[in-house]
Simulated scan of single mutants.
Amino acid sequence: MILRARQMLRCRQDALRTQRLSNARGVRFAPQELVEVEAALVRIDEGCFGGCECCGGAIGRQRLLAVPEARYCLGCADRRRALAPGR
């Protein structure tokens, strides 16, 4: 699971960095996404990948396969979105 997530994150990191370099040609780039991807790679290296930063529980295999840069389990992510300004 960790190896697959690392591979997915590195591919996304490469794609985002390429977009950043191409940005001068009008390609849309989301710098926050690159920050999240790189933070997930650091969590893998530090051995804390897959743990929710809010409740400390497991994020869940299916969620990590869908969103490998996820910082929060689905329950905590939903609660954070519900409390976000502008809702």
Rank of each mutant, 00 (worst) to 15 (best):
C52P: 00
R6E: 13
C73R: 11
L9T: 04
G50Y: 11
R20S: 02
R4A: 15
G50A: 14
R80G: 02
A82S: 13
E69G: 06
A40S: 05
Y72V: 01
R43P: 01
Q7I: 02
M1Q: 15
A30C: 04
R81H: 07
A66T: 02
G57C: 08
G60K: 07
C48M: 09
F49H: 12
G26R: 07
C54Q: 14
A30W: 05
L21N: 05
R25H: 11
C11K: 15
R87L: 13
G50I: 06
A15D: 07
G57E: 12
G50C: 12
C11L: 14
A15W: 06
A39F: 04
A30H: 10
D14F: 08
R10I: 08
I44C: 10
L74W: 00
R61P: 00
R4T: 11
L83M: 13
R81Y: 01
Q62Y: 03
V67W: 04
E38K: 15
E33S: 03
E38Q: 15
Q19K: 09
V27H: 11
V37Q: 06
L34N: 04
Q62L: 08
Q13M: 15
F29M: 02
R61C: 03
P85K: 07
L41F: 13
Q19C: 01
R4Y: 14
S22P: 00
C48I: 10
N23H: 10
I59P: 00
L83E: 13
V27W: 08
A82C: 05
L3K: 07
G47S: 14
E53C: 10
G86F: 07
E46C: 10
A77M: 09
E33H: 06
L83I: 01
A39M: 07
A40D: 01
V67R: 06
E69T: 03
E38L: 14
C52D: 03
I44K: 13
C73T: 04
V35I: 06
A30Y: 07
L65H: 06
Q7H: 14
Q62R: 12
R61A: 08
C76S: 02
A77L: 11
L3Q: 07
M1W: 11
P31W: 09
